[in-house]
Design a binder for these strands. Structure first.
Length: 305
DNA sequence: AGATGTCAAGCGGAT
DNA sequence: ATCCGCTTGACATCT
């Protein structure tokens, strides 16, 4: 069992989501400085993860801010290839598997051609970033997105948009969501695209599509073929709306997932732990050496490093 | 230095 | 008809 966390490390007070405003895109030096900070923070986080035997980490979706935007002013692949290869080598040396999760605006199944084109551009950026990092096993995690009142038509558009995009498909992994596309529905789309799917336990609880968690996992596992399967776990914040992530992982939720994996015949997989507490949530999940925050209430803002 | 309003984008559901 | 929440906080401006 390998675990990891997304986007930022609270103990280090470093993140990978530094960005800037669209209005600032004209300042190339500033963009390069933001990207350099994200790469430097990633390297620090990879070193932390290596020290504490953490094997998964998700990059922030704005790792290279506006990389897929038509106004982006330079060739980011050429400009950052060297630094990205170095950071990727660091991850590879400690066996870390990276990933990235484009946002909710990425909708390849949209009926609007412009939205489809922007979505493909965003996915090419995400996949290309992982390629430059030298991470052939790294997923670009994506929800199916809108259904527009006609799920079969939306699914067909989604598949048609992506089926001839090998550079994207080498990294793409589809995830069930909390209200529209259930795990079983996502598994059907994933099979059509020969791409893997990620079961998210909290989304599945809110949108189970009529099947229990072990059955959902059984449907997802074969989609990974030669790749190591990956799942998401998170716990509900009891004080917030359904779907909001809690600070940590409820032990009952963890036990439920382990039991479901055992029942589905896949005891050893990769689990991305999505919580407000980031790496702190891994301490009770087999990573006791992760240092606690000295004072959460007085800690400086993440990303300030 | 700290607080606050805003930030590229799409969708579904709530008010 | 309008707002909210999400990938997820971080930027930018004002005090």
């Amino acid at each position: 069992m390998r675990v990891g966390y997304p986007c930022l490390n609270l103990a280090l007070n470093r993140g990978t989501n530094r960005t800037l405003r669209l209005a600032s895109l004209g300042d190339q030096a500033r963009i390069r400085a933001v990207v350099a900070a994200n790469i430097a923070n990633l390297e620090a986080i990879i070193r932390f993860n290596a020290e504490h035997r953490v094997r998964l980490f998700r990059l922030g979706s704005s790792f290279i801010p506006f990389a897929s935007h038509e106004a982006f002013p330079y060739d980011w692949r050429a400009a950052h290839a060297g630094a990205l290869r170095a950071a990727g080598a660091l991850a590879a040396n400690s066996g870390q598997r990276l990933s990235i999760h484009p946002g909710q605006y990425t909708v390849p199944g949209s009926p609007d051609e412009r939205i489809r084109a922007a979505s493909l551009a965003e996915l090419r950026y995400a996949a290309g970033l992982l390629d430059l990092l030298g991470q052939p096993d790294a997923p670009v995690v994506l929800h199916v997105g809108g259904a527009y009142g006609d799920k079969p038509a939306a699914a067909a558009r989604f598949i048609a948009s992506l089926e001839n995009e090998p550079d994207i498909l080498r990294h793409l992994a589809l995830e069930n969501d909390e209200r529209t596309w259930s795990a079983a529905e996502v598994a059907d789309i994933a099979r059509a695209l020969h791409t893997p799917m990620i079961v998210d336990t909290l989304h599945h609880r809110l949108n189970p599509g009529g099947i229990p968690l072990p059955r959902a996992i059984e449907r997802a596992l074969p989609t990974w073929r030669s790749h190591r399967p990956k799942l998401h776990i998170s716990s509900q914040d009891p004080a917030k709306n359904p779907g909001a992530h809690a600070h940590g992982i409820d032990p009952a939720d963890w036990d439920e997932l382990l039991a479901a994996l055992d029942e589905a015949g896949a005891p050893d997989v990769d689990i991305m732990v999505e919580s407000k507490g980031k790496e702190q949530s891994l301490r009770p999940l087999g990573h006791p050496t992760i240092p606690a925050l000295s004072s959460p209430t007085t800690a400086p803002r993440a990303g300030a490093a």
